[in-house]
């Protein structure tokens, strides 16, 4: 089986397309660093550092990658500058492997007594939570699973309407109490509905909140506790959505949200913009929480399960 065992051809194409901008700048910058160089010296490493940092890989991970390449150059002595691309690819791939998280898939774990799988989606404002939920619901629907959405973002103007439109587009039911309702109460209703209707999965939207707002972060805890009362162990998955164009603050977001609630999956959105893939490398390296989904386009099907090798291959155009 090839590298893309579970990775269909059109998905690979979409990933390539989505990342094409990143790849271009990444590769063209990389190519520039080795022009006229016969071997990897301090200058080349300096340039490489710039390439990585300008791709939002982050200072810590960049230093880690540079150190490794430096060590390898020292050991193998005669590394040709042309080989730099291959070496970099290897190092990034192995860095992602070390994270010890397995590649993600769209799948729903089975819970005792056939209880629905519950996903709570959280994140700061404007990262694309609602859109991600719409795409996620679409994926599960296509797997012939019964999905139910909960509109617990009752704060932002018209957030409920936005999710209603998504529920119609995908063709799944939605539980909502309108704007300004108590989000915990919406979550409670959604889970009860999911339970009584025998749904496979319930996805709860929450209002965007900046991670340094203590009261809003505490509210997440309350929503979570209420869900646990309806279905013990719920939510099973707390998905933190990060905007792929966010810089180093993404790490702080992951840290603070993890402290407030048990984040166990990450989704990185908007990777189809310019030069944004780097943040995925930094986050996979620095965070123990696995990157589960990536958003690579605006279409309803443009949410993918994150595969490390496929990602690196796509980044390097292979």
């Amino acid at each position: 089986m090839g590298l893309f065992g579970l990775f269909s051809k059109d998905k690979k194409q979409k990933l390539d397309e989505g990342l094409s901008k990143t790849k271009e700048t990444f590769l063209s910058k990389l190519a520039r660093t080795v022009v006229g160089k016969s071997k990897v010296d301090a200058d080349v490493l300096d340039e490489l550092e710039e390439v990585l940092i300008s791709s939002d890989v982050g200072v810590a991970t960049t230093i880690k990658i540079i150190d490794r390449i430096e060590a390898r150059v020292a050991k193998e002595k005669y590394i040709n500058a042309d080989e730099l691309q291959t070496i970099l690819r290897d190092e990034i791939a192995s860095l992602l492997e070390e994270n010890n998280t397995s590649d993600a898939q769209f799948e729903l774990p089975v819970h005792p007594e056939g209880q629905p799988h519950v996903i709570m989606v959280v994140g700061v404002n404007g990262v694309g939570k609602t859109t991600t939920i719409g795409k996620l619901a679409n994926q599960f629907k296509q797997m012939n699973k019964s999905v139910i959405l909960g509109a617990a973002d009752t704060f932002r103007a018209a957030a409920v309407d936005q999710l209603i439109i998504w529920s119609e587009r995908v063709g799944v039911p939605i539980i909502q109490q309108g704007m300004n309702a108590d989000p915990a109460s919406v979550a409670f209703d959604t889970l009860q509905a999911a339970k009584s209707r025998g749904a496979d999965v319930a996805i709860i939207d929450t209002a965007g909140r900046l991670h340094n707002k203590v009261n809003l972060m505490n509210e997440l805890g309350k929503i979570k506790r209420v869900m646990d009362k309806v279905i013990p162990g719920a939510p099973h998955e707390i998905l933190l959505v990060l905007d792929g164009s966010t810089g180093q603050n993404a790490f702080e977001q992951a840290k603070q949200f993890s402290l407030a609630t048990d984040i166990n999956a990450l989704a990185i959105t908007k990777l189809d913009g310019t030069a944004k893939g780097g943040v995925v490398i930094g986050i996979s390296d620095q965070m123990k929480i696995p990157v589960k989904y990536i958003g690579v386009g605006e279409g309803i099907n443009d949410l993918q399960a994150f595969h490390k090798k496929a990602f690196v291959n796509s980044l390097f155009g292979e």
Binding site: D56, N212, S245, G247
Partner: peptide
């Protein structure tokens, strides 16, 4: 909170629509 890409985006928008000013949001983070 935008990362390194902020300059590319700003430059692309500026080249295209020559904006007059910038609004920086979510600074309460």
């Amino acid at each position: 909170m935008t990362g390194q890409d902020a300059v590319n985006t700003a430059k692309a928008f500026n080249d295209r629509i020559d904006f007059d000013g910038v609004v920086l949001t979510k600074l309460d983070g």
